[in-house]
Amino acid sequence: MNSFHQVDTPSLLLDIGKLKSNINRMSGFAKDHGLKLRPHIKTHKSVKIAKLQLESGAVGITTAKIEEAIVMASEGIKDILIAYPISSPEKIKRVIELLNKGVDLKISVDSLEQIKLLQKELEATPHTLEVWIKVNSGLNRCGVEPGKAALKLAQAVLFLSHLRVGGIFTHAGHSYGAASKEKIEEIALAEASAVVESAEACEKAGIPILVRSVGSTPTYEISGKVEGITEVRPGNAVFFDAIQVGLGVAARADCALTVLSSVVGVYEDRIVLDAGSKTLCLDKGAHGLDSVKGYGYILGYPELKIDRLSEEHGVVVFDEKPTLKLNDKVRIIPNHACTVVNQFDEYTVVEGDRVVDTWKVDARGKRK
């Protein structure tokens, strides 16, 4: 098979040139500003891509769940932050299994009760677990409030023999709903301030904070420039998608990931594609974004809108009927690359029109 036009649909196409350019953009920014780079792999869930990021200068990776960390560690990736609160005994036992295998693991913490549970399970082991305090920078999801609350949690860790504070971090995910570049900048500066304020409070109390980490793709190139920040953790920036284009963070030409879909029906007022909600997902941005229209952008056909999805059908509407006919194929930039990748077993890797490889989505479906 030479051309992606011969690939069955729906399929996930990955442009290797754009992928490497995006990876270099992240690592170049980090190097230029004296920062460490710890990309979030929940976007791509691929060992191959994670290793390309490490080869480009990343110091380690970030995962959302323990199972993602297990997959990456099994392939030799050892420096891992799990940026998710872990407190159940079942999950802590799996954390201990990773520590037993020599993984340099860091865990997100944001409550006194959680750190006590971690300590209890670790007491029967020889391990001291590195924990990073998560602070809330406006997303209002997980995280303690910046400053005094972060200091209080750090002081509590000092009394626990099997934990040590390694860093303070945040995630400004609400930037995905920003209505302007000015709002993105405002969120980015608040993101950095939440981390720096918390780290400085700890250090004034004699608790060193070596890592001060920020992470949202729309904000990291702003918040990463703030004095006191030492690390960035972008995830979506490895691919970009229609949401990032809508935010002005990337151009469509930067989007490395597309869904290849076929026309399965042509009617007077609509065209139907074989990419439905089980392919494109019902995502227009987790935090709302007016600039995202429909359920993906069809390359080469700006007049078309993917208006509605059922499980296996994408219904496309138009003002003027296009020339597309039955079995024609189109490429769709997904609204949210992270969720779409999780629907596929593999990437079809392309260079121009030519298929050059297939890569597994190694950690797809990992929810624990």
Rank of each mutant, 00 (worst) to 15 (best):
A237N: 00
S88Y: 11
Y295I: 02
P218C: 05
V249Q: 01
S11K: 13
V144C: 05
E182I: 05
V7Y: 08
L260G: 08
A179H: 07
L13D: 08
I49R: 06
R308M: 12
A64D: 01
E197I: 07
G248A: 09
I96A: 12
G173C: 07
A58V: 08
N140F: 15
I49L: 06
T279N: 06
F240M: 05
L139M: 14
L122E: 09
V259I: 15
S213A: 12
L324N: 12
I333T: 02
S213R: 11
K181R: 13
I82K: 00
E97V: 01
I333F: 05
A172K: 09
K51F: 01
L118E: 05
A237Y: 01
V361E: 02
F29P: 03
H171C: 09
V196M: 10
C338I: 14
K183V: 13
S291R: 14
D254R: 01
C338K: 13
P39E: 06
T348I: 15
E182Y: 01
R164C: 05
L129D: 06
F240I: 03
D353H: 12
K305D: 05
C142G: 07
K101W: 05
S108V: 01
V356H: 10
L210W: 08
V340I: 06
E200L: 14
L260S: 07
N22R: 06
K65I: 02
D283F: 02
N327P: 02
F318L: 06
T62N: 03
I222W: 08
R233S: 09
P234L: 07
L129C: 01
D328F: 11
G138W: 03
M26R: 02
K42L: 10
V316L: 07
L280M: 10
E121L: 09
I306S: 10
G17E: 13
Y267F: 15
I115K: 02
P322A: 02
V315C: 03
L35M: 03
P10A: 11
L122P: 08
K360E: 14
L153D: 00
E191A: 08
C338A: 15
L257W: 01
S11R: 14
E145K: 12
I207L: 00
K148N: 10
S88G: 07
E312W: 10
S11W: 11
L112Q: 05
T62Y: 01
G235Q: 01
N342L: 06
G215R: 00
F169C: 00
D283Q: 13
G177A: 00
D362L: 06
R233N: 11
Q6H: 14
G248H: 07
E231S: 04
S213W: 07
S223I: 04
L326S: 08
I222V: 14
H174P: 09
K325G: 07
V196T: 10
L14I: 10
A205V: 06
Q114N: 08
K18L: 15
S21Y: 05
G28L: 04
T279P: 04
F239P: 04
N335C: 12
V95K: 03
K20D: 15
V259K: 12
F318G: 09
L122M: 06
A30P: 04
S27G: 00
Q244S: 15
E67I: 01
V211Q: 10
F240D: 02
K120A: 13
L35N: 00
I49V: 15
Q53Y: 06
G365N: 05
L105R: 04
S213C: 11
Y220H: 09
D353P: 01
T258I: 01
K116Q: 13
S137D: 09
G294R: 02
K91C: 02
K325R: 12
R331I: 08
D290V: 13
K305C: 10
